[in-house]
Write a protein that binds this DNA or RNA. Structure first.
Lengths: 339, 339
DNA sequence: ATTAGCACTCTAACCTCGAGAGTGCTAACC
DNA sequence: GGTTAGCACTCTCGAGGTTAGAGTGCTAAT
């Protein structure tokens, strides 16, 4: 599969130019715009070869070439040079995380989506830390009146999950306290994902006589456990509209309605097989979803501590500025992990 | 401003037909499709009058008429007949609120946005109950380690606001408890919006010697107070794309980017001067926002208990099925309030 | 192996033209 | 006087045709 070095140059020129111009690029353009000391005719021959090999294609007989998905893949894997960000851009990123006095996780995520989409001009997707991975800290019941109480599940990362539960008047406050402290003792220090359903049913058995009241408590626990579909935060959803490939309303519609479906998005970002620097690039059909077969996704995961806690991605057209996007993503993940 | 009864009929026919067909409607169409026993010529004369009066307009010399915003306004205020929903639709609404075992406020809101947008085929906007209006229940501090603690502010409606704060090691746990119980005593039973900044600074003075630690606590309180911009939940944002008036990408872009700006949306839904049945209709330019000058907004407020707690709205083109939308909204608000 | 030259192809933009829809006006009608 | 038929007029929209331009592939020369 070895491409001659001249073919590589030409492929690189085609991809680079097409990324910038969004126009099929012809032999003449390459010989003029890039300093390959070659005549259009030579380039034409190589382009024909590249087309036959599946790296390029012609939209129609008499147009220039555009990269195929295979072409992009080769570009990303072999040809792409790492981009440098402008100093001002780096500063902008640093400022967001240093200067802003935002320490709430949700805030941080929102700022990140905005930052990322405004820098890249694509759509950004961010998934935050997972409740599942945090350790159980405390369970607490706070009565409102003699029927309802607020049940709080606190994790050591500061997550709080709460639920209003109904409890029988017959339950004395002493008894209530005993139950709560029993549960606390049993659950102490466990991470949420260790809260297997086995353990829950065990607890359920132990406290059989209080079962009615506790039902809702267990429901909360089970919910925390089941909550593996996490909210995907989006930014710059309208950016795709400025991409010329989305002049077609039908495509826009398909993408936007995908954006409304959290479950699909979460799935889209899932299971990145980390590549260079922990960044994965998925080009076109490599994304399983129908709607994004003409898009590329650049994904990074980030850690707080040693566990991977979140995913952060950029969705743009296949004709995306890969190297720049990757550079931005790296920079942001870096800053993010300092928190 | 009295329109002759025949002109009313004609205006109504034009609006009705245009709402259904999205095509300028001509005199011939009206005389054929609606049983006014009139010839096209007569209708033409009246239409010319209606145009002069500002209720109708012609896109170009030789097209039919379409309603102006004034025309829609007159239609909504005077001509519109109340729509009946199909039994199946009513059932669908009831099911969502009765059958589903969702009792979390956020869940309810999400289901509502989906329901509303799928029934109307427009975009739905829902604002939930306001933290501000709930009564303060309890402040609680839960230490993590000897530097950080979780600060919880619980309201009686089940709202929980939390923040991780840093506190000095020098603070003994007894002292901490005293501070917390002091604050609880002072704040007990107040609704959040009674938490004036005067009160907060008073407290701040009283606890001057603990000031450093408490600073973050006060920040939380002030944040709760300031939080008058509430999250607007959206549903069916892509529905607008199927409306023929949004064939233009620029308009779509403007609207969608509006949808990303929570603050503007919140403002858009604000201050409805309740009309019939507590439902407000804002047509075109009656909405202050540039981006929705070609849209109409139907807004209802809902109560849980006696206080108005939330707003729920539908955004569609000015050529919207007003009566149907209103009927759906009424039905949903009704069911919602039963909770 | 590379390049110049040339005939060929395809698209996109522009024009023209006619059909169709709808109007306004006038004159006739009840 | 209100209503209607008839007709000339206007405007849009789409189909069809034409042309300029860009880019190719092939051939023959270097």
């Amino acid at each position: 599969m070895g491409l001659s070095s001249r073919k590589k140059d030409i492929l690189q020129a085609v991809v680079t130019d097409y990324i910038k111009m969004a126009q099929p690029v012809g032999s003449r353009t390459i010989s003029r715009r890039y300093q390959v000391g070659l005549s259009p005719a030579t380039i034409r021959n190589d382009m024909a070869d590249l087309e036959e090999m599946g790296y390029l294609l012609q939209p129609h007989t008499s147009a220039g070439r555009i990269p195929t998905q295979k072409g992009y893949r080769y570009y990303v894997d072999e040809l792409m040079e790492t981009a440098d960000l402008e100093e001002s851009e780096k500063d902008k990123i640093k400022q967001v995380y240093e200067f802003e006095k935002i320490r709430e996780i949700e805030e941080i995520i929102k700022y990140t989506t905005n930052l990322l989409s405004s820098l890249t001009n694509y759509t950004s997707l961010v998934i935050g830390p997972q409740l599942k991975k945090s350790a159980f800290k405390k369970l607490q019941i706070m009565p409102f009146d003699n029927q309802r109480a607020l049940l709080l599940l606190v994790a050591d990362t500061g997550f709080v999950k709460n639920k209003v539960i109904h409890y029988p008047q017959t339950l004395s406050s002493g008894e209530l306290n005993r139950i709560v402290s029993y549960l606390n003792r049993r659950l102490e220090g466990l991470t949420i994902d260790k809260l297997t359903s086995r353990l829950i049913s065990e607890l359920r058995r132990d406290l059989y006589h209080h079962i009615k009241f506790l039902e809702e408590t267990f429901t909360l626990l089970e919910e925390s456990l089941a909550e593996d579909e996490r909210r995907v935060f989006l930014g710059g959803t309208t950016n795709i509209l400025s991409q010329p490939e989305f002049g077609d309303l039908e495509k826009v519609r398909a993408l936007l309605s995908l954006f409304e479906q959290n479950a699909l998005l979460a799935n889209l970002l899932a299971r990145p097989v980390a590549g260079i620097d922990g960044i994965t690039v998925r080009i076109g059909r490599e994304n399983m979803l129908e709607e994004v077969q003409e898009c590329s996704l650049v994904i990074a995961t980030y850690c707080l501590g040693k566990e991977v806690v979140g995913t952060i991605g950029v969705l743009g057209p296949t004709r995306m500025e890969y190297s720049r996007t990757i550079a931005i993503l790296e920079q942001i993940v870096n800053q993010l992990q300092k928190i």
